[in-house]
């Protein structure tokens, strides 16, 4: 039994990114919740050890408004600052330098988007930003398209983790290209995480069955009717998918194969 109460999955089944080792394979976002208290409760129910966060201007007109760090506490979760809203490498570097100053973290999530309709990553600019960030001392987990060619370029440039989308951010459409994800996972020597596109628990399980190291999601939990219950479902789905991957699935067959022996029939 491991600490999740799940038989068969050893507590030693950890994953490591940029020298930091984690047990939970579910990273959750902190956006779109109705309030920070629900957000914190969902992160706990997800069993998450890492949460993504964004950097924005403080509200000068109301400095007493609730702050994320008062609810989702940096001593409880590893904060993974993102570059959401950045469209150039320079924007991303500026944002993450501020994040590093705000909290001292150098493990970051890079996302450089192309347009606001589909939020798909601009891979040329993402690769350029990655090189700028690495030169500045960051350890970078990179949100990217599900393109194995670009994934390899990111890894060769020094990405700490490759994070291909399953489907566009917030779309909840599940894993759209299992073949490409499989190719990315097969070639990668750094962790691969599906980031974006998960809509429900089975999507997370599919990602883990493909052999991903972890899954990152936000909207699927935040926009569920009961976010805390969905966070729990996602936790179980990630564990189930991981165990299924480790267990090794049965072969697919064209025809039936009886489970009860045909010999000895009366």
């Amino acid at each position: 039994m491991d600490d999740t109460g799940t038989p068969g999955l050893s507590a030693a089944d950890t994953w490591t990114v940029a020298g930091r080792t984690f047990t939970s394979r579910l990273i959750v976002g902190t956006g779109k919740y109705k309030d920070y208290a629900t957000n914190a409760a969902a992160a706990e129910a997800a069993g998450a050890e890492i949460v993504t966060v964004a950097i924005r201007r403080v509200n000068l007109s109301d400095p007493s408004q609730p702050m994320l760090v008062d609810h989702v506490k940096p001593d409880r979760f590893t904060f993974l600052p993102n570059t959401a809203g950045c469209f150039t490498g320079e924007d991303a570097v500026r944002t993450l330098r501020l994040a590093r100053e705000a909290g001292g973290w150098n493990l970051v999530k890079l996302e450089v988007l192309s347009n606001t309709k589909h939020l798909l990553p601009d891979m040329e600019e993402t690769l350029r930003a990655l090189k700028l960030l690495i030169a500045d001392g960051f350890e970078v987990m990179v949100y990217c398209s599900d393109d194995p060619v670009y994934a390899l370029k990111l890894e060769e440039a020094g990405a700490a983790a490759i994070m291909p989308l399953g489907a566009p951010i917030g779309s909840g459409r599940g894993i759209q290209n299992m073949l490409n994800l499989g190719l990315i996972i097969e070639q990668a020597k750094v962790p691969v995480l599906v980031d974006a596109g998960v809509g429900t628990a089975s999507d997370a399980a599919v990602a883990m069955e493909l052999g991903c190291d972890a899954v990152l999601m936000n909207t699927a939990i935040a926009e569920a009717r009961d976010p805390i219950l969905m966070a729990s479902a996602m936790r179980h789905a990630v564990i189930a998918g991981r165990e299924a991957f480790l267990a090794g699935r049965m072969p697919k067959r064209m025809y039936a194969d009886p489970s009860s022996p045909l010999a000895g029939l009366i």
Binding site: T30, N39, N82
Partner: peptide, 10 residues
């Protein structure tokens, strides 16, 4: 002057 802080994000 720019003054920023952490907020929720994905």
């Amino acid at each position: 002057i720019e003054i920023v802080h952490f907020i929720g994000g994905g």
